[in-house]
Nucleic acid binder design. Structure first.
Lengths: 191, 191, 191, 191
DNA sequence: GATGAATGAGCTTTCATTCAT
DNA sequence: GATGAATGAAAGCTCATTCAT
């Protein structure tokens, strides 16, 4: 369980899973990308599935950490929400591959993966949801909004917008997208 | 290519693909769900992939049709947008399985699927985007918003909110979710 | 067992078996070539294999008949042998497809097919062999030759020469080939 | 691609292909004959077809090599021809299975197999043909013979005679057959 | 620990055959 | 008799996993 051995596997796995999805990715291909032999992967992860789950956990941990850090830096709820959006987008920007894996395998088919991961999913949603509820208590967030739905919607909006850009976009201007998302999520589309 | 024969296959396939995803779904299982033999599937669809693509096409067609119809009934842009959100949510409500398939397989891993489908994907986004642009021209939609990103964000918000409810929710109140989404997407979270 | 029904099946089967071989030929394709439905084939032949065997029997019957007729017309052994070569070549010329089927499926893998067919194979060889033996008795055929081997060799020489021309030849001059074969088989290559 | 691993596969494949033909032979059966698992075959040959083609190539290479060697040892054209017949027969004697495969699959249905193999087929014929032409130039081979046809006929005579003996013969006397074939091919049947 | 050849369960797909219409 | 949709056995091939080196 040497950590220096695990790192290249981790990165290679991320790339291959992102490209092919869980089922079509082969352990062999991951090993080749990592420049090691197939057996070595099994010395570090019990199975392909366990490797995948480790990826997911680690990724969600990083996402939560990044978002928490940025959110903690701000004082008002609205600033915190902006920071959250910005942090999520920037995380997806940095880990494009992971973004694909996350949206397609986990949010898409939540029940396929272990409880363990589902808890993590809910964990991240909870963070958003709590922020919204605190905002409603303070009177800066609209009280009409049902917070669980809104939390999911925010995640979905940022995630799909980001993903759309990776997959299809002719040009990708990070700042323009960030600005649009902030504006959109805080104030809606209506003038 | 009897249509009465294709219908049960279609439905069974939708269910199984939604449950397992494309790769883990087996043709055998789809056949069993449809109460027919494996070979019969191949009498109606050339391959597992073709069956899947037929599902996607048909689904996107229905989604576009449902949305177009509702949108056309309204006069102002804001009403049209509300109608769009409502139609998309209600479509996902009616075709829960399809919602899962769409978000996980297609938006998640767009490039894995044929051009043919990508065009359809873009098609639906375009509808939203054009509505937004017309709104900006009329002055009812905020001009700061970059429309392509916003269109993706709207789709993602509605989709993930709906999906979240199917997969995790303890209670599912359609009207509450719809109201929340409309409020959120039109006016944002800020009070 | 209508004979008028069987004829088109027979012809279509011959063509398809010759093109694809027994295993790769499909009953469906034969039916399509014959302009009838698949089920109709099974009304006339119990199985694909039975159809194939019927083809072989019929073919060998015709070959034997054609050869016997020509051989019977001649008086001397050497004339009879010439007639045999000529009749076999001209039969292969007329039934090219059959020639392919015969050489590849039957002589190639004799034991794969039923006794029934093996008897027919031996039957035709026997005809040649008996002619040779009568010739040896009369003193016009070289006595050093072991007749069973020679019979097979004659059949093989004519068959492969004919087949080679169908499959590869740039130009196909029937008379030139016939003349060469006669000369070769009767007098050998040596001057 | 360990050569020691490929050898048993090669031998098992030869046996099974000879017994069943290409289409009816199953990879599983070949594996069982070789005493290994199905997957191991695919570690060594990309597909069943590739395995078969490898067999053909290797076989034709060996045949050509054996024949060339024997032919080169002789000085006169007639001796070379005798050597060729003898070498071909003895090759077929040694590799009975290969003889069956070659005659049934390749000469029988030449067009089904790749160019690659067709070139090899033509290659071997060419060798015979050139020998005949040189003989005609020297005046020891009858000038009336069209050499392409004759080459095919020689191959067919030796091949079918050999095959006939493997498949049907009650007794198999190599020397008697060889003597008969030499006599027959050089001087014909006529006394 | 690292390797990669060997394994065999499990998948997609084909197609001879049946049988209700 | 003719039809062709339905069937499911059987085949080729992939790939996660194991394990001897």
């Amino acid at each position: 369980m040497n950590e220096t051995r695990r790192m290249p596997i981790f990165n290679a796995a991320m790339k291959v899973f992102a490209e092919k999805g869980f089922a079509r990715a082969t352990v062999n291909e991951i090993a080749k990308h990592a420049g090691i032999a197939k057996g070595t992967i099994y010395n570090n992860y019990k199975s392909k599935k366990k490797l995948f789950l480790a990826l997911l956990e680690e990724g969600i941990d990083r996402l939560e950490a990044a978002v928490s850090r940025e959110v903690a830096r701000k004082d008002t709820i609205l600033d915190k929400l902006e920071a959250l959006i910005s942090a999520q987008l920037s995380f997806f920007e940095e880990y494009r591959d992971y973004c694909k894996v996350l949206l397609s395998e986990v949010w898409g088919l939540g029940h396929r993966w272990e409880e363990q991961v589902q808890r993590l999913q809910l964990g991240y949603f909870q963070t958003i949801q709590e922020l919204l509820e605190k905002g409603q208590a303070e009177g800066v967030i609209c009280r009409d909004l049902e917070t669980e739905t809104t939390a999911a919607a925010i995640f979905g909006a940022v995630g799909v917008a980001a993903l759309n850009r990776f997959v299809f976009a002719r040009e990708y201007k990070y700042n323009r997208i960030l600005q649009t998302l902030k504006q959109f999520l805080l104030n809606g589309v209506a003038k």
